[in-house]
């Protein structure tokens, strides 16, 4: 049976997923060796038992925490996939601001808002965390693939290593944080 891979994007921009698509024709090669479980690529919404889970994005709200934990429960290997998952990335640039000030400014005081605007409190909306965190601060993470996004070459090399069962190593030019 082919090993399963699940992917998701938490507080990310899907850029890492776009970069995954950039492996182009090698996607077909990949599909011969693995099967995709939950992923934006196939639009499957729930995650089952998997060999590998790729997590894009940092953790910025309650839903991110739930999804991340769900992945951790189902995946033998969790990979922090891209800069935001590794260190919080761009969303974490809000961390020097107080969340209360952010919510107030965005929904109540910034110019151009309709009168009477208030901070949304629909229970359907996930609540934001006080700070944005990299995923390794919430669950145990097995591997890290940095980059904003990691290049297609880096992803290809990394996944190949993982699937074969080899500790992934990225040489000069493939290991990048930007």
């Amino acid at each position: 049976m082919k090993p399963k891979i699940a992917t998701t994007s938490l507080a990310g921009c899907f850029g890492c997923h776009m970069s995954l698509l950039d492996i182009d024709l090698r996607l077909l090669e990949l599909l011969q060796r693995v099967e995709f479980d939950r992923s934006p690529i196939n639009d499957i919404k729930t995650v089952g038992p998997c060999a590998i889970g790729l997590i894009e994005g940092g953790v910025c709200n309650a839903e991110n925490v739930e999804v991340l934990r769900e992945f951790r429960r189902h995946c033998k290997i969790i990979v922090a996939f891209g800069a935001c998952a590794v260190n919080g990335g761009l969303p974490a640039q809000r961390n020097h601001l107080d969340l209360r000030d952010i919510l107030e400014e965005v929904y109540q005081t910034s110019p151009g808002l309709a009168p009477g605007c208030s901070i949304p409190n629909d229970p359907e909306l996930p609540l934001p965390l006080n700070k944005v965190h990299p995923i390794h601060e919430i669950v145990r993470v097995d591997y890290f693939l940095p980059g904003c996004p990691p290049s297609a070459e880096a992803i290809w090399k990394f996944l190949n290593d993982l699937i074969i069962g080899r500790t992934p190593v990225l040489g000069h030019g493939l290991l990048r944080y930007d």
Binding site: N87, G89, Q93, R176, D178
Partner: peptide, 8 residues
């Protein structure tokens, strides 16, 4: 520190 390579 705050080391965000993508925006540096």
């Amino acid at each position: 520190g705050n080391h965000f390579c993508p925006s540096c």
